[in-house]
Amino acid sequence: MLILGIESSCDETGVALYDSQRGLLAHALHSQIDMHVAYGGVVPELASRDHIQRVLPLTTEVLTQASVTLNDVDAIACTTGPGLAGALLVGTACAHAIGFALNKPVIPVHHLEGHLLSPLLSANPPAFPFIALLVSGGHTQLMRVDDVGQYTLLGETLDDAAGEAFDKTAKVLGLSYPGGPAVSQLAEQGDPERFKFGRPMLHSGDLDFSFAGLKTAVLTQAKKLQATHPLTEQEKADIARAFVESAVDVLSKKCLTALKDNHMNRLVVAGGVGANSQLRERLNELAQKHKFHVHYPELHLCTDNGAMIALAGCLSATRDKSLLNQHDSFTVKPRWSLHSTS
């Protein structure tokens, strides 16, 4: 089964071809970072307009890479939610237009399910069941994954997502958008002993998260220093280091608790923050110490991409053949809970 995947939930346009027998055949991605950087964040209207310009050329590109035509495609998978409504509509409308023109089924895919399953595209894919940490700019969740489509929410952020806290910290420190990579890189130069921030909800007794207070701690410390002088580069690095140490401590220890509570030894980390070097280093250390396996997507598949959507669509259709009979009208779901898909 050959699946064309289309991703357009936020600020990346991704298109890919995945074959159930041969794996990932081709994928292409366009990032809007250069366009949004002047605004310090994603501008939804600009994002939607850019998706319109990119999605068809990227589709042509992956078809050429794989040496196939649209007629060879068995179904089209597209991100239906969650995400920016206008951006979602672009990819979904394109998918349904192709499906209608060629009488091909269209498979709706949950954006986070794509991230969750993306490590299955790696050279060392995890086996079911496993615990998944979905950590990105919009989401921070711990899920129990028993199989494709069988997801149990264990914990989630009560306010800011981890990636959002990274972006806001970057803004306080005068770093460019997107903030995650910039804060992580700056933290490498920081003194881990100079500033200490709390570990929010580390001892809450559950698997929920909260990063709003940590973001406020960064702002408070920066303002305290700025009361007497402009922040030096070393002070920025020290604040970044304290922030990263706190966030990584909370994320990694809650993952360890989830594994122990569910008697599992496999952890999947997915989403944009899953590329964070400090988080990967800490989880790798814990995996070695506590004898569990940790799996990540390939670095180029940590951000939003069409490959994960094509894969998720293929696996969903394999599990539920009725998805291949969908030719009807469509909608998008800007707010859509992943565990509600189970």
Rank of each mutant, 00 (worst) to 15 (best):
A66Q: 03
L89V: 15
I76T: 05
L142R: 00
F209R: 09
A123T: 14
D146N: 15
Y177S: 08
P126N: 11
N71A: 14
L70I: 13
D191N: 15
A161R: 08
H110E: 06
G174P: 00
V135S: 08
N71E: 15
F197C: 10
P181K: 10
L134S: 06
V172F: 00
Q141P: 01
A161C: 13
Y151N: 04
F195W: 14
D206C: 13
D191G: 05
S204R: 11
N103Y: 08
D167K: 01
H203V: 13
G91E: 07
A95C: 08
T140V: 13
G137H: 05
P119H: 02
E188F: 09
G86Q: 06
S118G: 04
E113T: 04
S204F: 02
G91I: 07
I98K: 00
G163I: 10
P82I: 11
L154S: 02
S210E: 12
P181V: 09
S118T: 13
F195G: 00
S136W: 00
T92C: 12
H111W: 04
L173Y: 02
P125L: 10
A162I: 09
L120V: 08
D146C: 09
I131V: 15
D206W: 06
P200E: 14
E164T: 10
A97R: 04
P126E: 06
H96G: 06
L84R: 12
L121P: 04
Q141G: 01
I76L: 11
A123W: 00
V145G: 01
L133C: 10
E193H: 14
L112E: 00
F195L: 11
